[in-house]
């Protein structure tokens, strides 16, 4: 006798859901702090209904079948939201795996008298649910990666503040390693600010750059060249003794670039170019 597994499961919809919920609630890793039991119930109900609606005897063998698309969609939605809420991979994985227990449990009960059909059915359901849990992990990791990517973007954005230190002078302190994508962000921010503020002098402070190798030096030289192309002068400040040492040892030629040890001396140099003078106020008022 051939048993229609999908019909069997659909008939036992309620029972499976109950078992599943019991499994989930019994699990020690249940995160009541992140999601209420009602919400969890709704999620479970939604996924199970979609799953049971989609399966039929034909597509049970074919986990790639298009009929499961709806299920995949709901599941990836759940997985993604869990990744964002801060669930661990284990907790997210348990969600699907506990469904498997519930389904296999029901099948065992229903097919007590037909071992062959039971083996057959469990095998198929195992396959299907395994593929579902793999997908859950995939989406989980993917959304985590998205979070990382977004943060990377944010970091590179906050780490390039361009400051107008004086009328006609902008400064950009670089903190952290300077790679080629970072250089592009730095250059873009700096040149944009130069245009917007109409500044003729830019100070690039590298006191926060841990090391300058030939690649970093090349990026710096490029930034200076781009600034000059726009018609502004670029001063590099914050050259620490270690940096000066490595630069010379590596044979990097910075002679075309104005370099200063500190931001203060760079600013003084900039004042010189702009023909500004900063003076201490005289105490004696008559001299003023």
């Amino acid at each position: 006798m051939k048993t229609d597994i999908s019909k069997l499961l659909q008939k036992n919809h309620k029972q499976i859901l109950e078992d599943w919920m019991t499994n989930q609630l019994a699990d020690a890793s249940l995160r009541e702090d992140l999601m209420s039991n009602e919400e969890l119930g709704e999620q479970s109900q939604e996924l199970l209904s979609a799953l049971l609606k989609s399966i039929n005897d034909k597509n049970l063998n074919d986990v790639q079948s298009e009929e499961f698309e709806n299920v995949y969609e709901i599941l990836s939605g759940i997985s993604m939201s869990r990744a964002r809420q801060g669930y661990t991979p284990r907790e997210t994985g348990m969600f699907v795996l506990s469904l498997k227990q519930a389904i296999i449990g029901t099948l065992t009960k229903m097919l007590k008298n037909d071992p062959q059909a039971l083996v057959d059915a469990s095998f198929k359901m195992n396959n299907l649910l395994d593929s579902l849990s793999i997908m859950t992990f995939e989406t989980f990791i993917k959304s985590r990666e998205e979070v990382i990517l977004r943060q990377t973007d944010e970091i590179s954005e906050i780490s390039t503040p361009v400051i107008r230190v004086w009328d006609g002078i902008v400064a950009l302190p670089i903190i952290g390693t300077l790679d080629s994508s970072r250089t592009q962000v730095v250059m873009e921010a700096l040149l944009q600010e130069i245009v917007e503020s109409g500044s003729t002098i830019a100070i690039l402070d590298i006191s926060g750059v841990p090391a300058v190798d030939s690649l970093v030096a090349q990026h710096l030289i490029k930034t200076v060249a781009a600034t000059r192309l726009m018609g502004a002068e670029c001063i590099i400040s914050g050259i620490r003794p270690e940096i000066a040492q490595t630069v010379v040892h590596l044979g990097i030629d910075l002679s075309n670039i104005v370099t200063k040890a500190s931001l203060a001396s760079a600013l003084r140099h900039a004042f010189g170019i702009l023909q500004l003078e900063v003076q201490k106020k005289q105490k004696d008022k008559t001299v003023r």
Partner: peptide, 30 residues
């Protein structure tokens, strides 16, 4: 030569082109 766009300046550097024959300035006034 005045008013070069930032993106253009960055691209020229990457391209390896220098404008040696001309002076540059930010805008018409400068």
């Amino acid at each position: 030569v005045v008013g070069m766009q930032p993106a253009v300046a960055i691209t020229l550097i990457e391209l390896g082109l220098e404008l040696k024959g001309v002076h540059t300035a930010l805008n018409v006034e400068k």
